[in-house]
Amino acid sequence: MTKKSPSTISKLWSCSAVLAVLLIWQLMTGSGMIDAFLLPSPLQVGKTLITEFPILMEHSVITLSEAFVGLVLGILLGFFMAVIMDRFTFLYQALYPLVVLTQTIPTVAIAPLLVLWFGYEMMPKVILIIITTFFPITVGLLTGFRSADPDAVSLLQAMGAGQKQIFFYIKLPEAMDPFFSGLRISASYAVVGAVISEWLGGFGGLGVYMTRVKKAFSFDKMFAVIFLISFISLLLMHGVEFLQKLCMPWKQNPAGK
């Protein structure tokens, strides 16, 4: 028998847990314990997902482009905030509470206002996504910048390095790890943020599709789109992990001699 690595075993466990939930769900709905119109069975949802696929793809493109634009702008804003807050202590003291405050605003409450101010097009959606995604980025980067070893910083200073060089040689690479942790969170926030803002007004996108099928009481379609959104979020998170591996080659087999 070949030995399995711990990560393979843990994957085995998590996969079987998901399968078990789906199985129980299938048994409960399939046997008629729960009425099919209240909760469709996983198999039913799967079938719907296949028949609805072309329409879902059209809506996905809209949602994903909103999420992408919002996320990119959110990263840029988050990066900018982190850099200036790290560089100037007074800005850190002034802005940090404000940045935290933006995270206490309930997204669902502000989304309709954004629609009133900016209309039904892409703009209000992108703004909402920026507000939700920049925060994990800013906090991640700031933590990283501040975790730089002061001895390493003074060594570079002794070598004659300026602020800019210290930033690029130490602070930025030091912040890569927390940055990607933040980005993983932000990427899934971006999709959820896009869907929520589509609920409250728009012409297309997965959120608009959701409100339509809800009004039609098509619960199978509702679940199909929920499955799809989860799948997209997972895919994005893996994409971020892949990007992280590319950007941080020093994290590969660190113990190998």
Binding site: D149, D151, A152, L155, Q157, A158, M159, G160, Y169, I170, P173, E174, M176, M248, W250
Partner: peptide, 17 residues
């Protein structure tokens, strides 16, 4: 600064380079 170099007990090699 920038005239003489120094080295500490910690090697201070940057792990990402």
């Amino acid at each position: 600064p920038g005239q003489v170099s120094y080295m500490l007990q910690k090697d201070l090699l940057l792990p990402y380079r």
